[in-house]
Design a protein around this nucleic acid. Structure first.
Lengths: 113, 113
DNA sequence: TCAACTACTCATGAACTGTTGAAATGTTCA
DNA sequence: TGAACATTTCAACAGTTCATGAGTAGTTGA
């Protein structure tokens, strides 16, 4: 994966509204969620949601598909995996202390040094 | 790890200069690299480097230590691991297709669907 | 103490990001 | 066809980010 794609994805994720959006969507799997439902769940305006969905879509992190009058959005999990894989393997060169986050049971709550 | 810390780290990483900086520093291990060496390696001005190092330091991704007239910067690998761990485990809830990036031999070059 | 060196701070301006509300577009159904 | 609904687009605005260059501060050795 090219670095420019990774940078676009990181920029997209580096925003509270969009990170919440990904969290909300990833739980729904490939079926996703309609724009209206997302706006209701997150409590944001339609135009604000549309703006952030566009950012995520341009970064390749979510995809939308129209079904009659609704548009359903879902996370492209493979793409998210590729971005994390870049950080892990290409950027951090599989540094053991970084890769520890992958270990079974590991989480972001891992104790500080 | 709190989401606000993760957002700060993602914002810090979502910049070409800073991602290059982390890549350059992580190869040097805990010894790190002096500010002057980094500026020379990346070919950027001192003030520009200082600005970006400050962003990374505020995000907790790098640490600096003074040694006589030099300041050596190193990546806090545990913190980087915690950020990736958050994306993997908390945000994506260990979704198998995302976690595939951790598999041995996996890389960001994983084939697209 | 002074010059040389190393790193940091600050002010400026250009470019980018995110929010808002109104208007436009597209879809369904009576 | 026209009303109702779902979503996107647009312009205006405020706020943030980043590059640049000039100036400042700390450290060393003659």
């Amino acid at each position: 994966m090219e670095q420019s794609r990774v940078l676009a994805a990181l920029s997209a994720l580096a925003n509270e509204t969009r990170l919440e959006l990904v969290r909300a969507l990833i739980g729904r799997g490939p079926a996703g969620m309609s724009a209206g439902d997302i706006a209701g769940t997150l409590g944001i305006s339609a135009s604000r949601l549309s703006f952030h969905l566009q950012q995520l879509e341009m970064a390749g992190l979510v995809t939308g598909r129209r079904e009659s009058r609704h548009v359903f959005y879902a996370v492209d999990t493979a793409q998210v995996g590729r971005v994390i894989g870049y950080l892990l393997n290409d950027c951090c060169r599989s540094h053991p202390e970084v890769s520890a986050c992958c270990a079974p049971g590991a989480s972001s709550r891992a104790k500080a040094p």
